[in-house]
């Protein structure tokens, strides 16, 4: 169990490193080595740590712990073939962590980050409709059942393409440097993590590594079906590289526009689900 967690944290951080490297190469820069993000976490964890005097102290520390706990839960839900609904619930709960990070510090930059995070939360909730689409097709929301369905009927990627696109946008929105990552856009310093430094930041980076691993792996499991570990790793890296390309080549959108695009996508998915519900 614990070995899965530690493995996932390291792989997630490594994926972050690959992501940065790929973006750098696409933009014609050498970029940092791919284990840079792991070093980053270690560096942060060795830094001196305290809590800002303006912060809401309990909350300030609690969100870091909750962030790690939330994504550990997600990992286990995924590994045990639990409910997809629960996996998405955990994903939404991550938004609470984002809000909490920004709000708890009392810093105006953190607050801006939190406000932007609230906006994006509102637009990501409707992407839940994806789940309804999967449910209508496979008749189950247990990840193990979905895998069994795919083993019998072939990948969901082709059967439920709109749902796959919606989930792809969800994953994209969560990547560093993505056009949807308005929360950490540089004009508000580091957004909602501005005040979390030292050990707190290290914990958060570990949680984010876990998050990247879980999201990429979930996408593979949900839309490509069960596959051996090595093949899954290759698929994850390929998926990550496709995301890196988008991140490297597209500019950061304005906060309101990201919301409009995401709500628009969600609206299309809702129409798709309703139509499918009527036809099926």
């Amino acid at each position: 169990m614990i070995e899965y967690l530690i493995f996932a944290v390291f792989v997630g951080l490594l994926l972050h490193g690959i992501h940065r490297k790929a973006i750098a190469r696409i933009q014609g820069r050498p970029g940092p080595p791919i284990w840079q993000e792991i070093l980053h976490v270690l560096k942060f964890s060795f830094k001196e740590t305290w809590i800002p005097a303006t912060a809401s102290q309990t909350l300030f520390v609690a969100v870091v712990i909750i962030a790690i706990g939330v994504w550990s839960t997600a990992l286990f839900v995924l590994l045990t073939g639990g409910s997809l609904l629960l996996l998405f619930a955990v994903y939404m709960l991550h938004k609470i962590v984002e809000h909490g990070l920004g709000l708890s510090s009392g810093s105006p930059y953190g607050k801006f980050g939190a406000i932007r995070s609230v906006m994006s939360a509102a637009s990501e909730i409707p992407l839940f409709a994806t789940i309804a689409a999967i449910y209508l097709i496979t008749g189950s929301l247990m990840i193990s059942d979905i895998q069994a369905w795919q083993a019998a009927h072939g990948p969901l990627l082709f059967t439920a393409l709109p749902a796959a696109i919606a989930l792809y946008i969800v994953v994209l929105a969560k990547m560093h440097y993505s056009p949807f990552a308005v929360i950490e856009s540089k004009e508000i310093v580091s957004g909602n993590v501005t005040e979390h430094f030292g050990v707190w930041r290290a914990g958060l980076e570990a949680a984010f590594g876990l998050k990247t691993f879980v999201l990429l792996y979930a996408f593979i499991v949900l839309f490509l079906g069960p596959m051996p570990l090595l093949l899954a790793a290759v698929a994850m890296v390929l998926l990550l590289l496709s995301l890196s390309f988008i991140c490297a080549l597209s500019p950061m959108l304005s906060p309101f526009d990201t919301v409009t695009i995401q709500i628009g996508t969600a609206g299309l998915i809702v129409v798709y689900v309703l139509l499918m519900g009527v036809i099926v």
């Binding site: 870091v64 550990s72 290290a202 914990g203 570990a206």
Partner: peptide
Amino acid sequence: NVVAFPFFLV
């Protein structure tokens, strides 16, 4: 694990 791991890291 989920409860103990965050405390461990931090």
